[in-house]
Design a protein around this nucleic acid. Structure first.
Ligand SMILES: [Zn+2]
Ligand SMILES: [Zn+2]
Ligand SMILES: [Zn+2]
Ligand SMILES: [Zn+2]
Lengths: 144, 144
DNA sequence: CAAACTCTGTAATGATATAACATCGGAGTT
DNA sequence: AACTCCGATGTTATATCATTACAGAGTTTG
């Protein structure tokens, strides 16, 4: 057993950086934060990210070209389809899954005989706090 | 009325290129195919793509960093959530939508007070023909 | 020890996307 | 026609994201 291999130094550094940050970071942003730790080249970061993504500890958000630490590791080990809601104002990310949605995708794939290997779902918009802030500003503007 | 503006020369060239191609193309691949028509710089392609994506005639597939002509324009004018199934072998794309899936996303957003602005769904896997081809090869391998 | 393997470091390069600036040309006005 | 406005265009340079290629260091395993 024990597919749960310990992290290498670079992997741990990258994961810690992402975990400490409440918004997604690009590979080069991670690199910048790790120069003090002796990380010098993009490839060192990309290699660590590859492994972390592979093991599910980190997710890549295609729409942002950025990476984020999984907010609930161990829960969606492998199979589950996860959706990401990304606030375009504060950049925070909410991760959720929904078995009904999974079922519908599975039904479509079944009907088309499509063999699904990966599903990417990214929703962009405004989180509740940014939304309220925006509405307040908007309200003030129209009121005056 | 008539938000249905005619396409400019560059926009028409780019759209024609994508429509004539049965797989997604990167911006630079489009550029290469249009050099004969006098298109010389990436920006000319990106500008045309921006407009085409904005009007819904073209979609960008984040997971491929590539663009594809909409397979049924005018149908999903604006609102609808569209999912793309992409064959990782032949690169062809199937575009579909499902109101039940939309409802579930809307329900999540409602519960979280998240204001959705865009939803990206990309499924990668094997289309029916590539899947059958792969299974045939696999079968032959194990049989012999 | 040596083979096989994995992780590492470094340099160079490739691929994707945008910034900045000058210019062109049609639409509406005078 | 001359003037102005505004969006599209062309060009160069640059920013950002990601990979290839190669060599070395450390570990298991036989
Ligand atoms: Zn996760
Ligand atoms: Zn927010
Ligand atoms: Zn479409
Ligand atoms: Zn296929």
């Amino acid at each position: 057993m024990s597919t749960r291999r310990a992290l290498t130094r670079n992997q741990a550094l990258v994961l810690d950086t992402l975990t400490a940050c409440d918004e997604p970071l690009s590979a080069y942003a991670i690199l910048d934060r790790l120069r003090g730790e002796g990380v010098r080249a993009p490839l060192q970061v990309y290699r660590a990210l590859d492994k972390l993504v592979e093991t599910g500890l980190v997710h890549r958000l295609d729409s942002l070209k950025a990476f984020v630490a999984c907010s609930h590791p161990h829960e969606h080990d492998g199979a589950a389809v996860v959706a990401f809601a990304i606030c375009e104002n504060c950049a925070r990310v909410w991760e959720f899954s929904d078995s009904k949605i999974e079922d519908r995708f599975a039904a479509w794939a079944e009907a088309e005989s499509f063999l699904t290997k990966a599903t990417t779902i990214e929703i962009s918009g405004l989180c509740v706090s940014c939304r309220k802030a925006a509405e307040a500003t908007e309200g003030a503007k129209t009121a005056v």
